[in-house]
Simulated scan of single mutants.
Amino acid sequence: MSQKYLNAFSVPISILTGALLVSAPSKSFADQLYFNFDNDVIIGADGDYSNGVVVGWLATPATDFSQAPALFKWQSVIAFPQESSQSQWGGQFYHRMWTPTEIAYDYPQPNERPYAGLLELESFTGQFSSSLAQKNWLSIGVMGPASFADELQTIVHKITGSTTPKGWDYQIENQVTFQFAYEVDALLNRWQAFDNSEWDISVFNHTMAGNFRSQSSVGLTLRWGDDLAETFGQLSSQAGHMGDYASYANRYGSWQAYFRMQAGYRFNDLTIEGDLPYDSPLNIENQQAQASLGVIWAFPTWSVSWSFNYYSKEYESDVDDWHGYGVISYTKVL
C-alpha cells in the first residue's frame, strides 16, 4: 500500500482518537476494558462476515453526564429526555472483514461477495433505567486496503494453518466512513421465575445511518437470569458493542441468558456497493433479519459472554439464505 493512502485515510481517525484521549480524564478513562472476538469458525467455513476484533472501554456508570468529558457530554444530547437512573459513555476500536466463500482463488469472483475490510473508531453514550434505555454511537473509519484486513487475515491464517487468502487484491477500494446509530429499548413485562431468577421481555428499535450502512430495524428481546432491572438495555444490536454487567453483579456472580431477534430494511451497504477493480453485478438485499442467542456471566471485577448470531443474506444472488458467526467477549474492571 502506498504512503499516499496511509496519509489520506489515517488523518480523520487520528483526529478522533486524539479527541477521545484528550477529553477522557484519568478518573473516567478505562474504568472497564473489554475485548470482543467475532468469527465464523463456529460454522466451519470462511465467507461473508468472516472476522471481527474489538478493543474498547467503558466509564463507570454515573447518575448523569455532568462529569463526562466534553466529547461525550455533547454526544449525550442526541438522546430524548428521560428519567434515567444511570448514564454511561465509552469508546472502541473495531476491525471487521468480509470475504467470498472461497478465499484460495487469486482472481476476481464477480458473483460472490467481494473482499472488504473496515477499521472504525467509535464513541458511545447511553441512558438507562429499569424499563427504558437509549444509546447512540458516532464512528469514523476507513474501508479498503488502509484497514489492513489483508495483512491481518494472512497472518492469522498462517498461525492457525488455515487456507491462505489470495484475493485481497480485488477488495473494496479505500473510502472513509462516517456512521451514526441510535437504539431505544422499552420493557413490556418482567416477572419472577424460579430460584430467585427473573424473566423479562422488551421491544427495541435500532437505526443506523451513514455511508457504510443505513438500516432501521425493530425487534424483541427475551431474557432470563439475575439483576435484570439493573442491566436493562445493556444488550444491543450495534455490532461490537459490549454492555456493562460487572458494575451490577453481586459478589457471588450474576448470570443471564437471552434471545434477541429483529427485522428491518437496509438502504445501502458499502461492503457490496463500494468501488471495486472489476465489474460486480451484485445488488444488496434490502430486507434483513437477525437473531442471536447468548449467555453472560458477571462478577464485580470481570464478566464474560458468548453468543451465536444468525443473519439473513445481504445480497440478492447469495445462494445461502442465512449465515452465522460466534462472539466471545471479556470485560475487566480496573
Results as ranks from 00 to 15, higher is better:
20 L>V: 09
207 T>G: 08
291 A>V: 01
52 G>Y: 07
182 Y>K: 08
143 M>G: 09
212 F>N: 10
166 K>H: 12
79 A>W: 04
113 R>V: 01
139 S>D: 10
64 D>K: 06
207 T>C: 07
141 G>H: 12
281 P>F: 05
143 M>P: 05
168 W>Y: 12
198 E>Y: 13
286 N>A: 12
305 S>L: 03
254 S>T: 06
225 G>V: 00
181 A>H: 06
179 Q>L: 04
83 E>Q: 08
333 V>S: 15
83 E>S: 04
300 P>R: 14
63 T>V: 07
217 S>Y: 11
88 Q>R: 11
112 E>N: 09
119 L>G: 03
135 K>H: 06
323 H>L: 04
80 F>I: 11
24 A>C: 02
69 P>G: 13
76 S>Y: 08
47 G>I: 00
108 P>R: 06
328 I>D: 07
193 A>Q: 13
53 V>A: 02
303 S>C: 05
163 T>M: 11
12 P>R: 07
232 F>D: 02
64 D>I: 01
195 D>A: 00
126 G>F: 01
252 Y>A: 13
145 P>E: 08
259 F>A: 15
294 G>D: 12
301 T>W: 15
10 S>I: 01
191 W>E: 09
190 R>P: 07
246 A>P: 02
184 V>A: 08
25 P>G: 08
84 S>C: 12
159 I>A: 14
173 E>S: 10
75 Q>F: 08
223 R>N: 05
58 L>S: 08
88 Q>T: 05
56 G>I: 07
173 E>R: 09
242 M>G: 04
130 S>C: 06
149 A>W: 05
284 I>V: 04
324 G>H: 09
301 T>F: 15
277 P>K: 03
241 H>I: 00
214 S>V: 00
279 D>F: 12
334 L>P: 11
267 F>A: 13
102 E>C: 02
274 G>H: 08
